[in-house]
Amino acid sequence: MSEIESKVVIITGASSGIGEATARRLGASRAKLMLAARREDKLKDLVAAIQKTGGTVAYRVTDVANRAQVQALADATLETYGRIDVLVNNAALISGSPLDQIKVDEWDQMIDVNLKGVLYGIAAVLPTMCQQKSGHVINLSSIGGHKVVPGGAVYCATKYAVRAISEGLRLESNGEIRSTIISPGAVATEGLRRLESNGEIPSTDISPGEVATELTSTITDGDTASSVNQFYSVAIDTDAIARAIAYAIEQPADVDVNEIIIRPTRQEF
């Protein structure tokens, strides 16, 4: 039996991109899924697709920047499946501009989703995992959590912080809770889940060569958008990240895959 089979896995940001790819892959491996995102229509479509292939899956509409909603997500998972084995903290948004543009509202949004959303997820599942004396938290950082780029200082700061939180969780877990950081480079559809105050930007089916054009529509500074456009021209598919997540989960309980950086072969940094 696969180490993934029958594990209860919560995935945030599951309605598109890396979250959707991960849900499909883990569903095919017979994990028991609880999917979370803000777009209910996308979640319903994904649930139907996974159920059609025999997967076990439920969903809950969740804004990860809202602590009460994240706690309700964990509570619903316990009510549905009786335990929580894995949390994939995937929901994130990206925006960028030089600091002297003073786009404080954008800074606040990234901090609320990318950083506080991760902490809210950990807070919601940690008591259950401690009681079980087992669990696995997988946090999505970024190559931006390893290297700061012009126009990306705040985004990179949130992703550096995710790495720090993940390592702190590992050190404090007494060997009972596994902690994994996945740091993607340029990935197709990355950034299309950028949350607006009125909901998420709809995802689209695009090729890696087209992804940067879509991504730049969410970045309000022209110079930063141009740089990101070039960066994403070599983007790899979301399933590459889903495979890395599955790899971390499927290891035996005494093996903790702490950190994976995964990026296109042609990506320079």
Rank of each mutant, 00 (worst) to 15 (best):
R67C: 04
T62K: 03
D63L: 01
D41C: 02
V47S: 02
G222F: 02
R193Q: 15
I50Y: 03
G145I: 07
D45H: 05
A186T: 05
D45L: 09
V88Y: 00
R60K: 14
G135Y: 03
G209W: 01
T56E: 14
R243D: 10
A240P: 00
H136W: 08
P252I: 04
E176R: 12
A235S: 14
K133C: 10
I177T: 05
Y160F: 15
S166T: 15
T77W: 03
D100R: 06
E250Q: 15
V137P: 10
A23V: 03
A92I: 05
A23F: 00
L215M: 13
G152D: 10
I165V: 15
E79I: 08
S233Q: 14
A72Y: 02
D100L: 12
A161V: 08
D63W: 00
G151I: 06
I219D: 04
S183Y: 07
A65R: 07
G185P: 07
R24D: 01
A28T: 12
I94T: 06
A31T: 05
N89T: 04
M110K: 06
A58Q: 11
R178Q: 05
Y232R: 00
G19C: 09
R25F: 01
A124V: 07
L169A: 08
A240T: 12
G13Q: 02
R25L: 14
A164I: 06
A244P: 01
I18M: 13
S2N: 15
R243Q: 09
G13D: 03
C130S: 10
A253F: 13
K147N: 12
F231W: 15
T128M: 07
K32C: 13
P264F: 04
T213Y: 08
P202K: 12
D105C: 04
A48M: 11
D256M: 03
G117C: 08
T80V: 07
K44E: 11
E5N: 12
V104A: 09
A235M: 07
I4G: 05
A28S: 15
K116P: 03
V187E: 02
V187Q: 03
T22L: 04
D205L: 13
R266L: 14
S2W: 12
Q109T: 06
N174H: 11
R83F: 01
I249Q: 04
